[in-house]
Each structure stands twice: as structure tokens, then as C-alpha cells.
């Protein structure tokens, strides 16, 4: 399978059928390391290369990842690595790696393993909607399958040993992508985010660590990995997410009730600009698509569906746009091509 084959499908978090009105997608990742090697950041390129050559065939042969696709970072152009990043298959950190680092993913992108990112192994599974429990089960099975062939770095006291102490213990990070335009428009988001931070959850933007929240999209994840069981971590996040979903639902109801005109204006402007603009920056596109998405969910916009909007969230990203055009584009050209793509997809 090549990168072009990947591009012909929608992406694991964009599959139809799930309830994605507020929870766009769920993700679980596990950090694991080999017993017998230094961690990737300290091992050196040659050792990483050895580890990748050892792990790649093992991972490729696992039924849990079959049929698998393999991408060595050194074999990809920068643009192609950015595509994998925009599809949430690799991290920003891995996108800048070369020799000795790679990705083995199920061809449907729902479950994958990054090799030699910050840790030797980063297992991750994704699904649309709120489905942490289900993907945790898949992840757990994959973890066991790998562990049968590769002895993990583990201590009775500290659990799975990771390059960064923030991940030690379970090595588990469960995260959920939320679309919260109701809370933002009602000016009620800050207390909710503050509450989340207070109970030890992290809130980030769409593309993870260090990214600014655009398009009213927020990623919520656990920070604590030591001292709690995996099932508890997952259950706790799901519980909290359901509460946030309830807040968002209430905010949308109040928005319809008290700020109907403001709401219709917001949605109408988003639709108007998206269908008529000739230049759209990445951030502007995300913000307007958020408004359109809200309009669809509240029945204000009737002849479009949410999935069309969600696909555009991905397709309007810089690397996807450039791959589509089969050439690298300057930011100004990107804005033009982005606007053109959005116009044709929405008309």
C-alpha cells in the first residue's frame, strides 16, 4: 500500500456511522520500550536503525495490524511525512525523523504503531465518536501480541518504563476530540476548561501538543499515567467527556433559545464565505467549517452533511492540499487552492 492509496480513503477518524456531533473522535496510545536497548532519543541512529529492522517484520506479521502498510520515515519526502501527521498517524516529532524511524499501520488506519518516536513503540488506535472502551480492547490485544515477541522494559514499581517520566506506569494516553462551538459562542468554555485542568486532564488543539485551538476543536486527554489502572483511566475520561457533551448540548439549546439571530448570522456567514471565498487560510477555513458544522447539527443548514465538512477539515490541511495538487505551494497559492476545493465540495 502506498501513500496515494491512503489518500483515496477518508481517514480513521472520519468514518461514517458514529455519533460525532460533539465527540469527533477517540484515540488511545500506549508507550512501550524494549528491555535491551537505550531509548530512541539516546540510542543513536545506528541502533535505531537496528531496532526498526527488527520490529518492522514482527509488526507487519501481526494479525492485529493486518493487512498492514509500512512507511519508513527515511523513504518519505517531507510532504508525505506531513500527510501522515495530518492524518494523526504519526506525531509532529516523528514527522521530523529520518533513518531508523517508521510507521506500521493497519491499512484502514484504525490501529497503528510508531517505531522510534520518543519511545521504541507507540501503539495507537483511533475511532470516530466516543469509543474509548472499544479501542482500548483492540489496543490491549495488540499490546499482548507484540509483548509475546518483544520483551518490554518494565519495573514492578514504576510499570512500563518510558523515555519521558510523564508517561511511565501504564504508558497510556486516552484522548478525545471535541467540537465545542456552543460553549465558545455562549462564552462558557473557560470555566469548563479550567475544571478539566483542575482534575488533571490536559486540553490541547486539534494537532496535539503545542497547537493552538482552531475551529472550536479541543483534544482532552489524561496526564496521569502512574498509580491508576488502565480501565479506570479510560472510564474516568469517558465519564468526564459525557459531562462536557452535556454542557455543550445545553449551551446549544440556550443558543437557539436566547441568541437565535446571532447563531443564524454566525452560521450563515460561515456558509457564505466558504462557498464564495477565493482565498482561505488554514485557520480561517477551520473556524468557518466549525460554524458550518454547528449549522448542520442544529438543522439550520439542511442540504449538507457533517461528514462532508469533516472531510474538508482534513483535506484543507497544507500537506493534503499540496499532495492533491501534486506540487509544493506557497502559502498564498495554498489559500487559493484551498478556497477552490471548499467551493467545489460545498456546491
Amino acid at each position: 500500500m502506498t501513500l496515494d492509496d491512503l489518500l483515496s480513503q477518508p481517514g480513521a477518524w472520519l468514518a461514517p456511522g458514529a455519533d460525532t456531533a460533539t465527540v469527533i473522535s477517540s484515540r488511545v496510545r500506549l508507550a512501550r520500550n524494549l528491555r535491551d536497548s537505550a531509548f530512541p532519543g539516546w540510542a543513536g541512529e545506528e541502533e535505531c536503525e537496528k531496532i526498526w529492522r527488527r520490529l518492522q517484520p514482527i509488526l507487519q506479521g501481526l494479525p492485529e495490524l493486518a493487512p498492514a502498510a509500512v512507511f519508513g520515515m527515511a523513504d518519505l519526502e517531507e510532504l508525505e511525512r506531513m500527510i501522515l501527521f495530518e492524518r494523526h498517524l504519526i506525531s509532529g516529532e516523528q514527522a521530523h525523523k529520518g533513518r531508523g524511524s517508521g510507521l506500521v499501520t493497519a491499512q484502514d488506519e484504525s490501529i497503528s504503531v510508531m517505531v522510534n518516536e520518543e519511545d521504541h513503540l507507540r501503539l495507537q488506535a483511533m475511532s470516530p465518536g466516543l469509543a474509548l472502551q472499544a479501542i482500548w480492547q483492540r489496543m490491549h490485544a495488540l499490546d499482548h501480541a507484540i509483548e509475546r515477541q518483544v520483551p518490554y522494559a518494565f519495573s514492578v514499581k514504576l510499570g512500563y518504563l518510558t523515555a519521558c517520566p510523564t508517561n511511565v506506569g501504564t504508558g497510556l494516553r486516552a484522548s478525545v476530540m471535541l467540537h465545542l462551538p456552543g460553549l465558545v459562542l455562549m462564552n462558557e468554555l473557560n470555566p469548563v476548561l479550567k475544571g478539566l485542568t483542575k482534575i488533571g486532564l490536559a486540553v490541547r488543539g486539534l494537532w496535539g501538543e503545542g497547537t493552538e485551538a482552531a475551529g472550536n476543536l479541543f483534544q482532552i486527554s489524561n496526564q496521569i499515567t502512574l498509580g491508576d489502572r488502565e480501565e479506570n483511566i479510560i472510564r474516568h475520561i469517558e465519564q468526564i467527556v459525557l459531562e462536557v457533551v452535556e454542557h455543550e448540548r445545553n449551551a446549544r439549546a440556550r443558543l437557539l433559545e436566547r441568541k437565535d439571530l446571532v447563531l443564524r448570522d454566525h452560521v450563515g456567514r460561515a456558509f457564505g464565505i466558504l462557498t464564495h471565498a477565493h482565498l482561505l487560510s488554514s485557520k480561517e477555513a477551520l473556524d468557518l467549517l466549525s460554524g458550518l458544522r454547528l449549522g448542520i447539527d442544529l438543522g439550520i443548514i439542511k442540504d449538507l452533511d457533517r461528514l462532508t465538512v469533516d472531510r474538508l477539515l482534513l483535506l484543507t490541511q497544507p500537506a493534503h492540499l499540496q499532495k492533491r495538487e501534486a506540487r509544493s505551494l506557497k502559502p498564498k497559492d495554498r489559500d487559493r487552492v484551498r478556497a477552490q476545493l471548499v467551493r467545489t465540495q460545498l456546491s
Binding site: 510499570g159 511511565v168 506506569g169 501504564t170 496521569i224 502512574l226 498509580g227 491508576d228 489502572r229
Partner: peptide
């Protein structure tokens, strides 16, 4: 970071 110093989660077989 974790308000704990003891792993209680899963263990490799």
C-alpha cells in the same frame, strides 16, 4: 506529576 509512586496497572505476561 502523577501523585503516585507505584504502578498498579497491567503487567507484561
Amino acid at each position: 506529576m502523577h501523585h503516585s509512586s507505584q504502578h498498579v496497572g497491567g503487567i507484561p505476561a
